[in-house]
Design a protein around this nucleic acid. Structure first.
Length: 991
DNA sequence: CAGTGAGCGAGCTTCCGCTTGACTT
């Protein structure tokens, strides 16, 4: 008889390293695998949205806001393979144990596994709090069911974060800049940085003087003391100053010395006979710090090792995977029984009994939303390996971090440190009879206790200095001492320090914002979005962060409230506890039912109210009244005073922008960056931000000798002279072909080649420097536009149908696409135009074909042939508006190619908007509306642009006549009017 | 906030949390 096959139980945990460990303890009959975190999530971008949901109004959000916030979960492409593997293992198993973490997210992962694997075998849920054989076997013996309330709470959290992020971010795209983001965590983190920077910007430093004395006792012992009172009145300290004025706070009853007074007094005190007025000594004890959790590990990694959060976590991850430490993403400082035992044993053996805390020290999480699914971060195992024994086994980062973790863990079970604090007051008189009082304080450690192993770092070097041990000689009341030297010293109040990675994490954590697994990435996110930059260890918010934060605070204040997450956690706890329901909770948040926040209607209401220009303008306290404004623009932050603009250098922190600096920047208007001189001509080379983007110019004459636009890959802020000179070699004469010169140029539509009156775009900017005549000739042999030249003759391919209009395959700017004249569909990756069948083409177009959007001011009708009446319509309109330049531009933008492409329509003809094409009657109404529409977007324009547009469009004045009043020459003004019109149309179209 | 020449299906960006490789230099 064949032996009965051994039963096979599949256990799924979250982390592969944990799976390996557990598998060892469970032995035969068990297969342990990991989910590697979450296996499914809401689609994160359009590419992940399944085809059949794409047309849904809520598809962009990934959850159906009209149907109880039902989530659309997808397995991301990179997880597909792994999920398939788990599915297969589940099918082969006799039993499935879901052993994901014992917290909200872990419960959810278990539920998703159940949903996705659809196991046909018995399923049990269990949790391990310790990875020891006993604990695991105990857990196996006491399974439970999936806690659906906890899963609901997780789904509520997930939905809320999605709704917040994906509803609010688009507001920023519209009002500040594209690709920005808002989120429950990042927006508060950004706000913290911005608020701190505001404090620094408003801060006015105060200064005061005091005297430091070297005191000598009769026995010759010396110690320092500081003047603290004069004539019975306390001397001012930093805390007596008002940070807003730099002066003493109102009502403070203190004496302040200036330099002269301090020096004079010092002279009158040398030498001074002083008496000990009081000498106090108080014992103190200090307890060790709790074992590490993620946030404290990151803080100490930063303070003591100088590691960024990412670096600390990378090193910790390796230690964890190597089995050196326990799990590194935790919010619990708790030590398991085996860890406690190991730590205490080690203290005894390494430091002796007297250094052991008499009672085991038990630590609890401080943060109110701690989930405590794991124990503290500590050396792994039931006896800790000493750092010394690992010296040759670990890399440098790993060893230093292990050393830190080991010390902190061991110290946490050590005895209190004991010592004395001494406080001495010395009285005396200056030679002019004024009464003085000096203070000295000291600190002596009598028994170091845990300090033998571990001293916590400090973010503030001054604080660390003050804390150092200063030992005072024994002193008794009435004892006479001498003030040997008197050194007057000046002091200044300091603004609050900027956040570092570590202190930001600490602050977020203390407010319950973010989770251990995300602390490090939060910092990455706000840097990636351009909200903050690191300078040394300081996190400095950018001007974009100021603009974004201001928008959110003014219009969505509740969302960036520091308590928002704390309140959310309470609600989630209620959902987890069955006291509240997910759907009504989300409805309140999203739609505002039952008096909730209702972000959806709130955004609808706020959108028109948000003045993009006001948001982009930052009122810097030190510039108020100067007429200089800080604005965030397309090319970065700049200063503006009427006509004059100057870029703010990227490396300048907001609090460094003083009036003086601002004036200095303004003296180099338009943010010129002088790069040096051209060695050939000796002319200066200057980088500038222009109306058409950043460019360099040769010579400082007007007009300059030469100009050249930067390539998209160039950065105005770190352009070298060498690069600028290279750019200035353009346009480049490539050679001759067919008797004509061939030039390589960088134009407004990008790089192109020109031969006589013919031109061809080329793909890469850098080719401008390298393209050869044979290559150019090849380009000129190609049709003028990619696929376009062919398009005149016909599309790439035509699919004919009996029952529907023919479908054409065309090549466009965004790649190949299908069109039947009314609807278009871009081909996706993997869909080869050449391989499409009739039916493919039909199904693609019918499934996802879209009608081109009709936009105000850009009529769809324009796509068809111009009606003959167009000209009449336009010219009459042109008379009405009297604004040639702007009108021509607007018309030109809307026009599609006339059939005769070689003939360029003169501006006057270009003006006829083909809007007139379809229903002619509609055109005037549309254009009339257009100005009304445009008008509401005046906010996107600069003052000058606005003045121009209003004068021309509303008052019907000519550019020529308005320009002088604005201090512009006519040519510039026309250009500006053109740009302004573009901007307005763009803004209106975005609506 | 400087000038060099076309013309045409836009569509996507974004959140927070849970986890690691698979790639390349």
């Amino acid at each position: 008889m064949p032996p009965k096959p051994m039963p096979n139980t599949l256990v799924i945990v979250e982390s592969p390293a944990k799976a390996r460990t557990i598998e060892k303890y469970l032995g035969k009959g068990y297969t342990v695998e990991s989910s590697i975190g979450h296996i499914r999530d809401l689609p994160k971008s359009a590419a992940e949205i399944p085809e059949r949901y794409k047309s849904e109004s809520w598809a962009r959000l990934g959850l159906n806001v009209d149907d109880d916030f039902k989530a659309l979960y997808v397995v991301s492409p990179e997880k597909k393979g792994h999920v398939a593997k788990l599915k297969k293992l589940a099918q082969e198993a006799d039993e499935l144990i879901l052993a994901t973490d014992d917290d909200r997210e872990g419960e959810s992962i278990a539920w998703h596994l159940l949903q996705e694997l659809k196991p046909k075998v018995p399923v049990r849920r269990m949790v391990f709090h310790e990875i020891t054989k006993e604990a695991i076997q105990a857990a196996i013996a006491s399974p439970r069911d999936i806690d659906t309330n906890l899963v609901e709470a997780q789904e509520a959290r997930r939905a809320l974060d999605r709704l917040y992020g994906y509803e609010v971010s688009p507001v920023l795209w519209r009002k500040v800049a594209p690709k920005l983001s808002a989120g429950r965590v990042q927006s508060v983190a950004t706000r913290l940085l911005v608020d701190r920077e505001w404090e620094r910007m408003r801060f006015v430093s105060g200064s005061w003087w005091d005297i430091e004395a070297q005191i000598l006792t009769a026995d010759g012992a010396a110690f320092p003391a500081r003047l603290s009172e004069l004539e019975g009145k306390r001397l001012a300290l930093g805390r007596d100053f008002d940070p807003a004025t730099g002066k003493l706070k109102a009502g403070s009853d203190v004496t302040m010395l200036n330099e002269a007074q301090a020096r004079e007094l010092a002279l009158k005190l040398t030498p001074a006979a002083l008496t000990v007025a009081s000498a106090e000594e108080k014992p103190f004890t200090q307890k060790p710090y709790p074992p590490f959790i993620t946030s404290t590990l990151q803080q100490e990694g930063s303070r003591k090792l100088g590691f960024g959060a990412q670096r600390t976590m990378r090193a910790a991850q390796k230690l964890y995977e190597g089995g050196y430490i326990t799990y590194m993403r935790t919010d619990s400082p708790n030590l398991s029984a085996e860890a406690m035992n190991a730590a205490r044993t080690q203290v005894k053996s390494m430091y002796g009994d007297s250094y052991l805390s008499p009672q085991p020290r038990i630590y609890a999480a401080k943060s109110k939303n701690a989930q405590e699914a794991h124990e503290a971060i500590r050396p792994a195992g039931n006896s800790f390996r000493t750092p010394d024994s690992l010296k040759n086994e670990l890399d440098s980062d790993g060893w230093r971090l292990y050393d830190l973790i080991w010390k902190r863990t061991v110290a946490s079970q050590m005895a209190d440190a004991r010592g004395r604090r001494m406080q001495v007051r010395l009285s005396g008189k200056a030679s002019d009879g004024r009464a003085v009082l000096f203070n000295a304080s000291g600190r002596a450690i009598d028994f170091p206790g845990f300090l033998r192993a571990y001293v916590e770092g400090s973010d503030d070097p001054n604080a660390a200095l003050e804390d150092r041990e200063v030992i005072l000689p024994p002193l008794t009341q009435g004892q006479a001492v001498t003030g040997k030297t008197m050194t007057p010293g000046g002091h200044e109040t300091q603004p609050p320090a900027r956040y570092t990675e570590a202190s930001l994490v600490q602050s977020l954590e203390s407010q319950g914002i973010g989770r251990p697994s995300t602390y490090a990435s939060i910092i990455g996110t706000i840097q990636d979005r351009g909200y903050a930059a690191k300078k040394g260890s300081a996190l400095i918010p950018t001007w974009t962060a100021f603009a974004t934060s201001a928008l959110l605070e003014h219009h969505f204040g509740k969302l960036v409230d520091y308590d928002f997450t704390a309140r959310m956690e309470e609600d989630l706890d209620d959902i987890a506890g069955g006291r509240q329901q997910r759907v009504p909770y989300l409805r309140a948040f999203y739609s505002g039912e039952g008096g909730g926040m209702g972000i959806h209607p709130l955004i609808e209401a706020q959108m028109p109210a948000i003045d993009a220009r006001a948001v982009a303008t930052i009122e810097v306290p030190k510039l108020i009244g100067s007429g200089i404004e800080v604005r965030v623009g397309r090319y970065g932050p700049y200063l503006s005073m009427g006509d004059v603009k100057a870029n703010i250098p990227a490396e300048m922190a907001p609090d460094e922008l003083t009036l003086e600096k601002a004036l200095e920047l303004m003296s180099r208007p338009s943010g010129d960056h002088p790069l040096g001189d051209d060695p050939e001509t000796g002319l200066p080379v200057i980088a500038k931000a222009g109306r058409f983007g950043p460019y360099v110019q040769l010579g400082d004459t007007n007009p300059p000798t030469r100009t050249a636009s930067l390539f998209p890959t160039d950065d105005l802020n770190d352009l070298t002279l060498e690069r600028a000179l290279k750019l200035l070699t353009l346009p480049r004469l490539v050679g001759t072909s067919e008797g004509e010169e061939v030039w390589a140029l960088n134009g407004k539509f990008g790089p192109y080649l020109k031969r006589g009156s013919d031109s061809r775009s080329i793909t890469a900017h850098e080719q401008l420097f390298t393209v050869t005549i044979p290559e150019a000739e090849e380009a000129f042999r190609q049709p003028r536009f990619r696929g376009r030249g062919a398009a005149v003759a016909g599309p790439l391919k035509v699919f004919e149908y009996a029952d529907r209009a023919a479908i054409q395959l065309k090549s466009g700017r965004f790649g190949p696409y299908l069109t039947d004249g009314t609807r278009n569909a871009t081909l996706r990756k993997g869909e080869e135009g050449a391989e499409l069948t009739l039916e493919d083409a039909r199904s693609i177009l019918e499934e996802r074909g879209k009608e081109p959007q009709k936009k105000p001011g850009k009529a769809k009708a324009a796509a068809k042939k111009p009606a003959t009446k167009a000209k009449g319509t336009t010219s009459s309109r042109s008379k009405a508006t009297k604004k040639p330049a702007v009108r021509a531009e607007a018309g030109g933008m809307a026009i599609h190619a006339p059939l005769k492409k070689t003939v360029k329509a003169p501006a006057k003809k270009a003006a006829p908007r083909k809007t007139a094409a379809k229903p002619v009657a509609k055109a005037p109404a549309k254009t009339a509306l257009a100005w009304a529409d445009l008008k509401s977007h005046l906010g996107v324009l600069s003052e000058q642009e606005r003045a121009l547009v209003v004068a021309t469009r509303e008052q019907g004045r000519k550019v020529e006549e308005v320009a002088p009043g604005l201090g512009l020459d006519v040519k510039k003004a026309k250009g500006m009017a053109l740009q302004a019109s573009k901007k307005l149309n763009q803004a209106a179209r975005a609506e």
